[in-house]
Nucleic acid binder design. Structure first.
Length: 425
RNA sequence: GGGGGGGUGCCCGAGUGGCCAAAGGGAACAGGCUGUAAACCUGUCGGCAUCGCCUUCGGAGGUUCGAAUCCUCCCCCCCCCA
């Protein structure tokens, strides 16, 4: 373990650090005992956290847990990240809305690499092991599966809220979905986890892990539950599939902009969960917001800078802010404007002009011609900086033009990147 | 195996022969305002060179001048009984 084997903190001191920001520890005495033994025997604890293999975009919600894992690492412990390639074949029953396409082995491998890359933005690569639960599940015989299934009861599985709700709402539950908690729990058996980290909504699954470890004669893990961060809508939990997430791998300006779009009521919450500012500073922010002097916008700017700095550094945060001001406060242009390849049906008119509506759609700025018409009528389209009011406008393609939809969508139309699909009439 | 209920646009959800491209809500997008891509207000929200036409209401057929709405078969989901 120790490339820094020297100053190991006492169990008590470690516990004090680890407890911070945690919603619940089951059970704290056990964690303390494990830490004590770890210190005494100079043996790191194994900290487990699992991830779904299908959605490799980690976001600020995941980061809460990752920072906690990082704390464990900094205290000398080992983190084992489990990519649930087998559990992913089921999909967590929590959000079983889409039927997930089965991932191929190669796709899972690719996703695992993407994960690892993102994980290393927060975790210490030297103390992080990434494994897939297919490593053990693919080798299990049917008899072993039956044995696993025999160690838990239907009634206990149905205690889980999601199942109960779905049952009551007359939504389908497939039998293999009942295996999800068992499989996640068995992961803990397989790696002999000392601690499993999860968001509060994972409580049930993590506790199944404890039960199964007991059933299999493995020392029980401690369950450490962390808060769930709301997404940019301020209501539902941050999630890729809902689309209300801020990814830790996103560009500074996306991060900055998305942060600015959270409801004002979420500012404190984000300071607490999405940044690393201390509790006194959060308290100061709270006072600032409650007092009437400060403009919440400025507090939110501070938040956005803090978040961007965390992942991209302070300079990037400053330039993201400048760009944001330029575009939104002053209605200016971004640094980089896409120059799409435009394919048009038919051909230009004699003067080399192209119908504005077709151009917008061809450039991918609007979904359809109808969409483009509507936006023009609503005054949402600008050509070279001035609003387009006439749906029938022709744009001469003798020189580059700047097209803008709303405040956020831009495209530079270069004549040499416009082609015609040659369709006659 | 028996009985009952249900599958509608991105999501939820009304609609049981023409007034339905389909109410309402949410999401999203645009405009206004502002303190920001907050909040609030207004508008838009299947496609088409634009008020008429085309393609949508699980799938395939059929009845009808006309079907999301009726009939037949099929697929899927839920509940109750066994």
């Amino acid at each position: 373990m120790g490339e820094r084997g020297s100053a190991v903190l006492s169990a008590r001191e470690q516990l004090d650090i680890l407890r911070e920001g945690v919603v619940e520890i089951i059970k704290e005495e056990e964690l303390e005992a494990k830490l004590e033994r770890s210190v005494r025997e100079g043996r790191p604890l194994k900290i487990k956290q699992g991830f779904d293999p299908s959605a490799p975009d980690l976001h600020l919600g995941h980061a809460i847990g990752l920072r906690k894992l990082r704390q464990f690492q900094d205290l000398g412990h080992t983190v084992i990240v489990i990519i649930g390639d087998y559990t992913g074949m089921i999909g967590d029953p929590t959000d079983r809305s889409e039927t997930r396409p089965k991932l191929t082995h190669d796709e899972v491998q690719a996703n695992a690499r993407t994960y690892t890359k993102q994980l290393h933005k927060i975790l210490d690569p030297l103390k992080t092991e990434v494994v897939m639960n297919g490593d053990w599940f693919s080798k299990m015989s049917f008899a072993e599966v039956m044995d696993l299934a025999g160690r838990y009861t239907v009634a206990r599985i149905l205690e889980r809220d999601d199942f109960t709700n779905r049952f009551q709402n007359q939504q389908p539950i497939s039998i293999h979905e009942l295996f999800y908690p068992l499989m996640q729990g068995y992961d803990s058996v397989a790696i002999k986890a000392d601690v499993e980290l999860g968001a509060t909504e994972q409580k049930f699954n993590c506790l199944v892990g404890r039960e199964l470890q007991k059933a299999y004669g493995v020392e029980q893990q401690v369950v450490m539950l962390l808060p769930v961060l709301e997404g940019t809508d301020g209501v539902r939990r941050m999630s890729k599939s809902i689309g209300n997430y801020i990814g830790i791998d996103e560009s500074p300006k996306e991060m900055y902009g998305k942060t600015m779009s959270i409801p004002d009521t979420m500012i404190i919450r984000y300071f607490e969960l999405a940044t690393v500012v201390g509790s006194e500073e959060v308290a100061a922010v709270r006072r600032e917001l409650e007092g009437s002097e400060a403009n919440p916008r400025d507090t939110k700017r501070k938040l956005a800078r803090a978040i961007v700095s965390l992942y991209h550094g302070p300079e990037a945060a400053v330039s993201a802010e400048q760009e944001f001001d330029r575009i939104f406060a002053k209605g200016g242009l971004p640094d980089e404007i896409p120059e799409p390849h435009v394919v048009l049906k038919g051909r230009p008119d004699e003067r080399g002009g192209v119908w504005i509506v077709a151009l917008l759609t061809g450039a991918g700025l609007t979904k359809s011609n109808g969409d483009a018409r509507r936006l023009i009528k609503q005054g949402g389209i600008k050509l070279d900086g001035s609003p387009v009011t006439n749906v029938d406008s022709e744009v001469p393609l003798d020189e580059p033009h700047l097209l803008q939809v709303g405040k956020r969508r831009f495209a530079k139309i270069l004549p040499e990147r416009v082609t015609y699909d040659g369709r006659e009439d």
